[in-house]
Amino acid sequence: MTLQKFMVGSIENCDLPGLGIIDLEVRVDTGAKTSSLHVDHIKKFKKGGKKWVSFDIHPTVHNVDEVITCQAPLRDVRKIKSSNGVTEERYIVRTSIRMNQQEWQIDISLTDRSDMSYLMLLGREAMLNRITVDPSETFLLTSE
């Protein structure tokens, strides 16, 4: 089955149902390879003999008191260069994303994005063969 690509703007909303997050505002960034998510209190642990991570997310940027604690299998540890040119080791988890009534799996790096305007950055790998970006627009999906 061939999926029909859909158009997004430079800022959109998405759900991360695997992490219990609904209506998260994301910055769509074709310059970033990997998606990233702002989290706090990252801890690595073993569960069933496998490596996992737990972390806290503040899903509403305007309400820092709201916290969701998540757990996910650790998919990878990668060296990622941030927008300021600094390379850091980040934990990578795989979870589902929902946009435009479609749902698929993406890899997300967990990091401190507290100095950024958006809690999540949607990178190229997550958009591959699904999304076309119009950088001059915002919230194209919510206007339908």
Rank of each mutant, 00 (worst) to 15 (best):
G9A: 05
L141G: 00
M127H: 01
W52L: 03
E125A: 10
S96I: 00
L128P: 04
L24W: 06
T2W: 10
L128Q: 11
L19Q: 07
M99T: 00
S96Q: 12
M116I: 01
D56K: 11
V28H: 07
D56I: 07
K79A: 11
D76M: 04
G85I: 03
S143I: 10
E88H: 15
E89Q: 15
K79M: 15
N100R: 06
T60H: 14
A32L: 06
T30G: 03
A32Q: 03
D56F: 04
Q101M: 11
N13G: 10
K51W: 14
G48M: 07
D134W: 01
D15F: 07
Q105Y: 12
L141C: 03
G85N: 07
T30A: 06
S136V: 05
D23K: 15
L128N: 09
G18R: 09
V77R: 14
T138M: 15
R27D: 11
P73E: 05
G48N: 13
F45Y: 13
E137C: 12
V26I: 13
T142E: 14
I42F: 12
L24T: 02
L119F: 05
V53T: 02
G49W: 05
H62Y: 15
M99R: 07
V53F: 05
T60G: 00
R98L: 12
L74C: 05
V39Y: 09
W104I: 01
G31E: 02
V86W: 08
V61W: 12
T138G: 00
S136K: 14
I42R: 11
I42W: 10
M1A: 14
G18P: 02
R124A: 06
P73R: 04
S96G: 11
E103M: 14
M127G: 02
F45M: 07
T2F: 11
C70Q: 05
S136Q: 13
T60Y: 13
V61Y: 00
V64F: 09
M116G: 02
S54E: 14
N63E: 12
E66Y: 09
V61D: 09
G31S: 08
N13P: 09
D76K: 11
R124T: 01
K47P: 00
P135C: 08
S54V: 02
P135E: 04
R27L: 15
I21N: 04
S143P: 12
A72S: 08
K50I: 00
E66Q: 13
D40H: 10
N63Q: 13
E12D: 03
I11E: 14
N100T: 01
S10P: 12
D134K: 04
F55C: 00
N84L: 04
W104Q: 06
M120P: 01
I97P: 05
L141M: 03
K47R: 15
D76S: 09
R94Q: 14
L37H: 01
A32G: 04
E137P: 00
F55L: 06
G48W: 08
T95I: 07
G48E: 10
T138N: 12
S82Q: 08
M127Q: 01
Q71I: 02
R75T: 07
S136L: 15
P17H: 04
S36F: 10
G49I: 01
D56C: 08
V93P: 02
D23S: 11
K33I: 09
R90E: 07
V61E: 10
E103R: 10
H41S: 15
V26H: 10
D107P: 01
L16C: 05
S35K: 11
R98M: 10
R113H: 06
V61R: 15
E25W: 07
